[in-house]
Design a protein around this nucleic acid. Sequence first.
DNA 1: AAAAAAC
Length: 496
Amino acid sequence: MTSSFSNLSLAEPLARAVAEMGYESMTPIQEQAIPVVLTGQDVMGAAQTGTGKTAAFSLPLLQRLLKHESSSTSPARHPVRALVLLPTRELADQVAQQIALYAKYTKLRSTVVFGGMDMKPQTIELKKGVEVLVATPGRLLDHIEAKNAVLNQVEYVVLDEADRMLDIGFLPDLQRILSYLPKQRTTLLFSATFSPEIKRLASSYLQNPITIEVARPNETASTVEQRFYSANDDDKRRAIHQVLKSRGIKQAFIFVNSKLGCARLARSLEREGLKTTALHGDKSQDERLKALEAFKSGEVDLLVCTDVAARGLDIKDVPAVFNFDVPFNAEDYVHRIGRTGRAGASGLAVTLVSGSDARLVADIEKLIKKKIDLEAIEYEEDQPRGRINDGRRAWREAGETGDGRDALPAAPAAPRRERDQRVGREGREQHRGFRPAVASRDPFFEKPYEASAAADATPAWEAAKSAPRSSVSANIKPKRKVAALFKAAQPETSVQ
DNA sequence: AAAAAAC
C-alpha cells in the first residue's frame, strides 16, 4: 500500500518539491487518483472539499509530462501540453501557483491567464512557450483568437470544479475551447459535487473514464460542524456578532447571494466595528486580489463575498463560514462551507435561515444526506440589529466604483397572472407557520428585540420538507436547462 | 431570487 508520497516513485525533481513543501502522507483522493492519472486514462474524480484534489491531478500530470517527451513535430519548443481550466480568476491564480511550486525543479514551464488583467504580460509569457497552461475560459478564448495560444498539441485537459465548468453559464465557452484541442487526449474532471445530470453530461466528454469517488459525491467534510440558525433578515448581522463572540471566532467567510448585498453587508459590519472587506465580481481584479490578500494576511477578519469565493479557495485555518443568505443551489452550500475545515482542521459553518428559505434548506438536507435541525440563537443585548440601508448611497459608501446600477436587481419579468396566483398560493401553503415569531420590519434600533424565532419554527419546518416542490423553485430551472443542453450537447468537433 | 467568465 502506498500511502506516502515517498513510495510513489515520483521523478526526483517532483519528489524534491513535494518533500520541501512538507507533504508526507497522501489523502484518500490522492492515493486513489494519482496511480490512475499516471496511466493516462480519463478520470472523473469526486472527493470532499479540502482533501487535496489539486495535487491529486497535477503531480501525476507533471510526472507524465516529464516521462513522455512531446510527440510534437512542430517547431515550437514548448507547445502547450496540459491545459487546466477553472471557473474563477482567483482559483486559476491559486492553482497556477501550486503547480509552479510542484514544477519548480523541473524544466517544465507553466503560466496562468485570466480576465481583468492586461493581456500583454500574459501574451509575452505565452509566446515564450509553456507546457502547462492554467486559465479561465473567457480570457483563454481571447488568447486563442489572438493566436497567442496554440492548443493543437494539448495532451491533457483538466476541468477543475468540473460540474461548474459544465454548467449552463460556462458550457458554450468550454465547448469552443475543447473544439481547438486534439481529440486524442486525456481528460480529467474533478469536483466535490456532481449531480446525476452533470455526470451524464460529463461522460460525453470522456473516453472509457475511470470514476474515482472518495466517499459519496456532495458529501460535506466531517471536520465541519454545521449549524442552521433561525434569523429574520434584520437579525442576521446581530446573529453574526453573537456567534463570533460566543464561539470566540476571529476570522470567517460570510457568503451573500448578490453583489449589492455583499457590498452593503461589508459596509455595515465594518461600521459595527468588525474588520471587514468585500469580494465580488463587480470589483476590479486588483481590488479582488487585494481583498483576498488582506484576508489571508489577517489584516481583515471578515471576508464578505459572493459565490465567486465559494469554490476551491484554499486559505489555511479559516475557522468559520457564515451563509448570510442561504445559497440558491445546494451544491454551492457544499462548496461554501468547504472553505473551512480543510486538510483535517476543524471548522464551523453557520447558515442563517429566514422564513422564506425553507425550500432551499430542504434541498440542502436532501443533497448532503444529513438531518438539519433549525436552532435559535440566544442573543446578548448589546448586539446591533436592524435593517441595513440600501440604494446607491450604500453602494457608494461601500467604496464601490461606478454607480451601483450593475448590481441593482434586474427589473422583474412581466407578470403572468395565472402563474403568479398559483405561486402565491403554493408559497403560502408551503411556508405557512414557518414565519419566525418576530417578523421585525422595524427601522434600525427602533424596537427592542422580542422573543426568539425558533420556538414555532420547527413544525412548519418539517412540513416544508415534505411539501411539494414549488414550480418557481430555483433548482428546477437549471436542471431543465441542463437536460436541454445534454440533448443538444455534441462532443467537440475535431481539430479544424 | 444570482454569480461567474471577455473587451
